[in-house]
Every structure is written in C-alpha cells, then in structure tokens.
Amino acid sequence: MDFSDDQIERYARHIILKEIGGAGQQKLLAAKVLVVGAGGLGSPLLMYLAAAGVGTLGVIDDDTVSLSNLQRQILHKTADIGRAKVDSATEALAALNPDVRVVIHPHRLTAANALEIIAGYDLVADGSDNFGTRFLVNDACYLAKVPLVSAAIGQFEGQLSTYKAHQGGQPCYRCVFPEKPPEGTVPSCAEAGVIGALAGVMGSLQAVEVIKEITGIGQSMAGRLTIYDALDARFRTLKLRPDPLCALCGEHATIHDLTLHAA
C-alpha cells in the first residue's frame, strides 16, 4: 500500500516512530475494528482510532443522544440531541478523517447477531455500560477468535484489560468475573454518577491498546488488569490467570455458543 502525500503528512508522527513506521501505519489503515457503544468510552476511543487511521470502524449502538450524555460523550454535540448516536458518530468521524470507513450497526448487540457482526472484524473494543453486554461481547469474541480490548468506568474508577483466551494460556473476561453481579448491587453511571473526564482517560488508554494490538508493538494487556483510581491519581495493575473452571474457556467449558444469553 502506497501512502498519498496527504496521508504521509497526516500520519507523520506515527510513521517516524520506529515501533510503528510505515509498515505499522499500513496495518492500521487495513484494520477493521468494532467499537461497542458510542458513549462515554466509545467517544474518545472512536476519535483516536479515526485519527490514527484505522481503516474501518464499526460502531454498534441503538441509543440516541441526550443532554445528560454531553458531560462525557464528546463525540456528540448539543445540536445532536435526539439523533441516533451512530449517525452523530459517523458525521464526527468523517469530519476528523475522511480516510476512515465507518460501518454503523444501529441496533443492540444480541445473542442472535453478535457472532455474525463480530466475525467481520479483526478486533473488538468494548465500551458498553452493563454487565450483560460485556459478557455477551466476551463470549462472542472467544467463539469467533477475535481479540477483545475491554474497559469500564464508574464514579471515579476505571478498569482496562485485553482478552485473547482463544489463543491459549490467557484468561477471558469470565475468568476474572465469573458471573454477573445480582441486580441492583452495582449501580449504573446514571444511578451513581461518573466524572466525565474519566471516560476520556480510559477511552484513550483503550485506544492505545487497540493500536498496540493491531501493530504488534509493546506488551499486550492480555493477562493483566489495570485499575485507575482518579481520586488518588493512582494506577495499579493486577496479574490475571486463566480459570480452569471457567464456563467459557475452562477445561470443562459449558458454554459452546450464545444460546445461553438472553436476546
């Protein structure tokens, strides 16, 4: 793939990095990444992936923009209130980088469509805001053999990890969180609140990990979980191990398809 003059200028700061260079930038331009959710995490994530020149960005979200979103969902503007988030996102990403092809999925990810959608991408970045979707994305990525970069935020804390259990020797999301917590025990951002800039921190870190996975540089976050405490301005990283009893990737796995998930 030859770069145009505009591309050489646009991606110059990547190309001069010896770890990325022209070959790494070509990998980014050829990559297809699905972002689950165009909200708090998805906003900075999508913007940085588009700016980096990821060639195809899939965006799945069935929600519309509301005024309360704008405190953290920087992909959208006040004028977008009431619009589908996928439409607002497409417009913003096209304005940022016309090199990028945006594929919209204006519906909820379900057990009926997850495998078909995810199988069309090289990597998935999950920015969803509920445990049900996180489990579904994890299971579909494992079954489709697609790497997953997952982040979550709440109040003043964020979490980030990469899951590639299908490659062997690494944990999946279920190894770390075996079951969804009981209803009402973990409040949503709407119930408990979240500092808006936290979404920017974690979504940006998520974008870095996606770029690393695509280009093959640095140390993968697979097998590690980073936790950011914004109030203490402190990062800590935990080592993760595969769970031999995991229902998805363990020695006696009981999940072999997505039929156990509610549609």
Score class of each variant (00 low, 15 high):
R236S: 09
I211Y: 12
G218W: 03
A230L: 15
D232K: 15
G216F: 03
Q219F: 02
E209Y: 03
I217V: 15
G218I: 09
R234D: 02
D229W: 11
I227S: 02
T215N: 12
T237V: 06
V208I: 15
Y228D: 06
I214C: 09
V208M: 13
I217E: 05
A222D: 07
I214L: 14
G203F: 04
R236Y: 11
V210N: 02
A230S: 14
A230P: 07
K212Q: 09
R224S: 12
R234W: 04
V208Q: 15
T215R: 08
A233I: 05
L205Q: 11
R234G: 00
A230F: 12
S204V: 03
V208C: 10
D229V: 05
L225V: 02
S220R: 09
S204Q: 02
V210F: 05
R224A: 15
M221Y: 10
G223I: 01
D232M: 13
E209R: 04
R224E: 14
G203E: 04
A230H: 05
R236D: 02
T215S: 12
L205W: 13
D229M: 03
Q206S: 03
V210W: 04
L231E: 11
R234S: 06
V208L: 13
E213N: 14
S204A: 12
L225H: 12
A207C: 08
E213Q: 15
K239F: 03
T226I: 06
L231F: 09
G216A: 09
Y228V: 04
A230R: 00
A230C: 06
R236L: 09
Q206R: 05
L205K: 03
G203M: 02
I217A: 13
D229P: 08
D232L: 15
M221N: 07
I217W: 05
L231V: 14
Q219V: 15
A207M: 08
V210S: 11
V210I: 07
A230K: 07
R236N: 13
G216I: 05
T237I: 04
D232V: 04
